[in-house]
């Protein structure tokens, strides 16, 4: 097991664990945006820069995907590392000035504002970290959204920038979005759920008892396909909203003899 010396703290990690893993074990905070433990680290946001000791010089590396293969010395709080991270944050703020999540993180890093002007009209407030794209393809298995274009005009979009046929309205993309740009909007009047800004809409499944919207019908179907115990009772339960599900379970429990005697 190699040892990582990070800001003077020594931690032992498994071979090929990342510097970020080591930092978390040492309880040293390194800001991250595009990192998520469930998907492959692409290190695209470049916010988690730290310095690696190379003897006579220090190399800036991304903590989230640098694999520890031998004993290394890393500086997360050095002037060089902090300056690099603040620089990246300022560039991100210029792109996504309205994100509260981003502003909060910037503040925690000691960045109050950005010196840079807005230089692109493309997909305001999206930092193009790609978490949504990865989660949609690799965890949900839908690949409804992807990148479109390149460079500063790159955007996250569904094919042909039309509402995607593959979107099931699960909202996983919104859940992982670190800057709060992707939103789930429920249109009660139409019984539809919309994933913004992709304009994809899915029909909502309504609770069979109280008619409250539960999840999109496709998500419910997918859940049924995935789960092996597929009894009639389960099929029924999944068509209920959480409240009605609770009520029904409570009723069933109450009807059980043990409770009668209890």
């Amino acid at each position: 097991m190699p040892t990582v010396t990070i800001d003077g703290h020594k931690v032992r990690v498994k071979k090929n664990a990342t510097v970020l893993d080591a930092a978390r074990r040492a309880e040293i905070w390194i800001p991250t945006l595009c990192y998520h433990p469930s998907v492959l680290s692409e290190a695209s946001c470049r916010l988690c820069m730290v310095e690696l000791d190379r003897g006579d010089w220090r190399q800036l590396i991304t903590a989230c995907n640098y694999p520890v293969r031998r004993d290394i010395v890393v500086y997360a709080s050095s002037e060089g590392a902090e300056q690099a991270r603040r620089g990246v944050m300022e560039l991100l703020l210029a792109r996504a000035p309205e994100s509260e999540e981003l502003r909060a993180m910037a503040e925690r890093m000691g960045v109050e504002k950005t010196r840079y002007p807005k230089v692109t009209e493309s997909q305001r407030n999206c930092i193009l970290c790609g978490l949504c794209v990865q989660v949609c393809e690799h965890l949900i298995g839908q690949a409804a959204i992807g990148f479109a274009g390149r460079g500063v005009d790159k955007a996250v979009a569904a094919p042909f920038r039309q509402p995607s046929e593959d979107c099931i309205g699960c909202g996983a993309c919104a859940a992982v979005c670190p800057v709060g740009t992707i939103k789930v909007r429920v249109h009660k009047d139409q019984n539809e759920v919309e994933i913004s800004p992709f304009k994809s809409r899915s029909k909502l499944m309504l609770c069979h008892e109280c008619s409250a919207p539960v999840v999109s019908t496709e998500v419910a179907e997918k859940a049924l396909q995935k789960i092996e115990i597929n009894t009639e009772e389960f099929r029924e339960l999944i068509r209920l909203c959480p409240r009605c599900r609770m009520l029904r379970t409570a009723k069933q429990l109450a009807a059980m003899p043990a409770y009668e005697n209890g």
Binding site: L92, I127, L128, R150, G151
Partner: peptide, 21 residues
Amino acid sequence: LQKESCGKCTPCREGLAQMLH
């Protein structure tokens, strides 16, 4: 370079656009 930047990482995508500006 700004036109050819793939747009994956922040410094290249945003930084080049700022420099060009």
